[in-house]
Computed example of a mutant assay.
Amino acid sequence: MIEIFDAHKRYGSSVALAAVDLSAEPGQVTAVIGPNGAGKSTLFRAVLGLEILDAGTALVDGRPYERARAPLRTLGAAIDPSAFHPGRRVVDEVRIATVSQGLSSRRVDAVLDETGLGLVRRRRIRALSLGMRQRLNLAVALIGRPRNLILDEPLNGLDVDGIHWMRGLLREAADGGCAVLISSHILSELERVADRIHVLASGRMISSADIASAGEPSRHVVVVSDDPEALRALLISHATDVAREGRALLVRGMTVRAVADVVFRNRFFVESLAESRDSLESDYLRLLAEAAPFDPVLRESPRPERPS
């Protein structure tokens, strides 16, 4: 289990994390999404002990990761695919990780096959594509069969087959009891594999949602008219919400039939009328738009003192 409590981190006058709480439970894929610079990588590095929090706590299975008795059995991390020595062979990097943890040498071949690297095992890392370096990063993360995984943008550089493979691997790891914490900008994939989504913006956690318990995505009616403002004024008394996007209106709280009835009775011309549903992407963009303004340089509250 990965737990983060009241995490604060700043670099000079710039705030990277502000009072962030998060937990990644065993048996679940927990995703953190947000724009570039939101603090995702800082948060993950803090769990690994690569960044020292100004205040707050990051724990892996109840203790700081640097105190883990068997680090790669406790937590596997794929953070930076460019961190490997370019002159080493693929198999050498995996062997180094194996020997460092006192693991059986048989794990080398097993994890290379598991991550699709068996055919390039003797290739120099400088000759690998980004997608293959991502696979190597994951191979090292998996070498100790860890109880927890942290993956920072692991889908970058993967082709369609690679993304499909990664989705299956993440789901298999979680179903086997592993706590998986992941970030990615490919929201459509996270929507398919994640159990819980956290949205981070300007160092703040602005939303957390359990996808598994969210039920069916909310639906709305999209109607395109040559006079959207007049139609909006008419529909607003019947619907719970009517938002305008150009010539289109997004109507919530009414069925397609109800909207069509209003349009017909009031002789409005419409080009299209259809039901749609929200996606993770639309919810994410809405949350960012609705988030209260926050200055990432100047904190609203005093910086907390480092705990003794």
Rank of each mutant, 00 (worst) to 15 (best):
E191T: 03
I96V: 15
H185S: 04
L128V: 07
R107Y: 02
L103C: 05
G253H: 08
P228Y: 07
H185Q: 05
G177F: 15
G56S: 06
P35Y: 04
G87L: 12
L48N: 02
G34C: 07
V32Q: 05
R121Q: 11
L112W: 11
D92W: 02
E275M: 14
A127Y: 08
V223P: 06
L138A: 00
G253C: 09
R171S: 13
M1I: 11
V20N: 01
G37R: 06
R267K: 13
S23G: 09
P228L: 10
R135F: 04
S129M: 06
E191S: 04
N148Y: 02
L190S: 00
V180Y: 01
P296I: 10
I33V: 14
V91L: 06
S207R: 12
T115I: 09
R63K: 10
G253E: 09
L75M: 14
L17H: 12
I211D: 03
E25Q: 14
P64S: 04
L234Y: 02
D6E: 12
R252P: 08
R204Y: 11
S225G: 13
V199S: 03
S23I: 09
D109H: 13
A291L: 07
D152S: 03
R45M: 08
G144P: 04
A110W: 08
D161S: 11
A127E: 09
P296S: 09
E172K: 15
K9A: 06
R133M: 04
E3D: 12
A139Y: 10
I143T: 07
A16Q: 02
L43R: 10
I4K: 07
V297Y: 10
A70P: 02
M1W: 07
W165P: 04
T57I: 07
E300T: 15
R124Q: 10
F5T: 15
H185E: 04
A38V: 10
P81C: 02
R107V: 08
A274H: 05
R232K: 10
E172H: 14
L22S: 02
E216H: 01
S183Y: 02
R306T: 15
